[in-house]
Amino acid sequence: MTNQGILIYAEVTREGDLAPVVLELANSAQDLAAKLGGQEVSALVVTNAGDIEHVKSDLKSNGFDKVYIVQDERLAIYSTEFYSKIVIDLINEIKPEIVLIGATTQGRDLAPRISSSLNTGLTADCTSLDINEKGMLAATRPTFGGNLMATILCKNFPQMASVRPKVLKKSTFPIEKDTQFIEIKPEIDNVEKKVELVEFIKNIPSTGKRIDESEIIVAGGKGLKSADGLKLLEELANVLGGAVGASRAAVDAGWADHSIQVGQTGKTVMPKLYIACAISGAIQHTVGMNSSEKIIAINKDPKAPIFQIADIGIVGDVYEIVPELIEMLK
């Protein structure tokens, strides 16, 4: 076998920072590399021509042997065409055994283009990564809306996997290595860019916290009966320092934007605490939040299915209980 080492795609956010998922992948890669007998772990940073010292320093104490850096002003905004060409070129050159990518919007746009181009397998949205007895990447992921877990192996190289942010934990201590930073020039002169970003409208959440990043989510459903309920939940979220979420019914009723919808046709979240208010708990909703560390449910209906997965359930009216709770917490 000629392929060696683990390559992590080190996504840089719109603000020019390292995406948090990169360090989560880095920690897991240390473990995989050790199981493979001490293989090299490297990262690839693709970004514009600006200052990236802060990105470098974030990467430095996280166990990378090599960091490949591709900087070019044409790369200021993510482009499927440019970025996939760059990642594919590097993979062809260094021939890693494993490639890991964060399952962010960008990662999910990019990764399948790379795997199809290289005709190799990509296991998406893994919840755990391991090396099996034959030295192959064993990637475990949920399917059927979390009803079934499947461990997937790949016959070709590199073996690719993506992992959602916050599923793995970043290292709690620095992993010092003599990281080598290698600058490479992108070969994108002949790549035709057919997608142009015209405008970006930043979403400023009412609580100031993004639902995919928040450790606490207060979510409301159909039982709230009006948009006022979500205002109330926003107040609770503010007191707790969390974000507001909504069920599909609340979004379809026009009380909330789709960007905060949790569930099958919305987002999958896994905060430390999920407070489900007047959400009955249909499976289409619970597939998006049942991996939360702790779940609190408040619902008038004692038979609501949400109580079956809640760590604590309170039977009662959200409009009566939540204001009391806010008062006590203030």
Partner: peptide, 13 residues
């Protein structure tokens, strides 16, 4: 290129 080596039911909360 990929195949399922094992499938199992996750622990139910």
């Amino acid at each position: 290129p990929t195949y399922v080596s094992k499938a199992f039911r996750p622990e139910q909360k």
